[in-house]
């Protein structure tokens, strides 16, 4: 089930993120993830940043720990083991979508928004990062989105502040049929509150510790769900019912800790 692939392209996106492109045949829908094995190092879950309709699939890796640091040092021609795709995907049917991307959350949202655009949806993007150089896929979004609004924590580009600060005015004038989000979970919680108060259906992509990724080990248990198979994309109606959302995560041991 694991395919060994050769990395064909390495694209430095921001100082802390890099995109690895590789040939991988299995059909993947936007929002799904793969398990990426860097032999001798680790195997980690990565949402596909190039998925639907692409022969050269891709993952965009942000340096977080040892595994992602080593993935950031991968060169063209290096070998990766890929299994998947796993999990569910974004429903592409809404006609007017507000995409709220925080930091590396843009990795999964960009291909989903592109796919929705191909189906004729109107796409607004609220893109946030800590600082201007860390804005992920800014140019990619600008190529297809109907509008792209930027925020940075330090004010080096766009509005100064968090990306969620942009939401009240966007939601007030937008008449959106969906809000899609991915990023730090505290940000996703704020976005859910904003979407709910404007009656906009919300879908967020979650991140949890993954081990088996095939519904057995329980490492990704999130309330009564397994993120690997019943996620990673959850509707706000579900997230608002799960106590863990924005509050608890499980460590590799399974111990529940405050997020």
């Amino acid at each position: 089930m694991r395919q060994i692939v050769e990395v064909e392209e390495v694209v430095r996106e921001t100082p802390s993120t890099v995109t690895l492109r590789f040939p991988y045949e299995p059909t993947a829908l936007p929002g799904q993830f793969v398990m990426v094995w860097l032999p001798g190092v680790d195997e980690v879950p990565m949402s596909l940043s190039y998925s639907d309709g692409e022969v050269l699939k891709g993952v965009t890796v942000k340096v977080m720990g040892e595994a992602s640091r080593r993935l950031n040092e991968v060169h063209r021609g290096d070998l990766l083991g890929i299994r998947g795709p796993y999990g569910n995907h974004f429903d592409l049917s809404p006609s007017k979508i507000l995409v709220v991307a925080g930091g590396s959350g843009a990795a999964v949202l960009a291909p989903a928004a592109e796919a929705a655009k191909r189906r004729g949806a109107h796409i607004s993007v609220a893109l946030g990062a800590t600082t201007a150089t860390e804005l992920l896929f800014k140019e990619r979004f600008r190529r297809f989105a109907d509008e792209v609004i930027i925020s940075t924590d330090d004010g080096t580009e766009g509005e100064k502040g968090y990306v969620t600060d942009l939401l009240p005015s966007l939601l007030a004038r937008g008449h959106y049929s969906a809000l899609w989000t991915c990023g730090p979970e505290v940000m996703m919680v704020k976005a859910l509150r904003a979407a709910t108060s404007h009656g906009v259906p919300y879908f967020g992509s979650l991140e949890r510790v993954m081990k088996c990724a095939v519904n057995l080990c329980d490492a990704c248990a999130f309330g009564p769900y397994h993120v690997c198979t019943e996620g990673p994309v959850f509707p706000g109606t579900v997230l608002s019912q799960v106590e863990d959302f924005g509050t608890f995560k499980r460590e590799a041991s399974g111990r529940k800790v405050r997020a």
């Binding site: 398990m35 195997e43 083991g81 081990k211 088996c212 095939v214 057995l216 460590e251 590799a252 041991s253």
Partner: peptide, 8 residues
Amino acid sequence: SGYPNPTI
């Protein structure tokens, strides 16, 4: 924590 991945 168990072993690093790949675990399956």
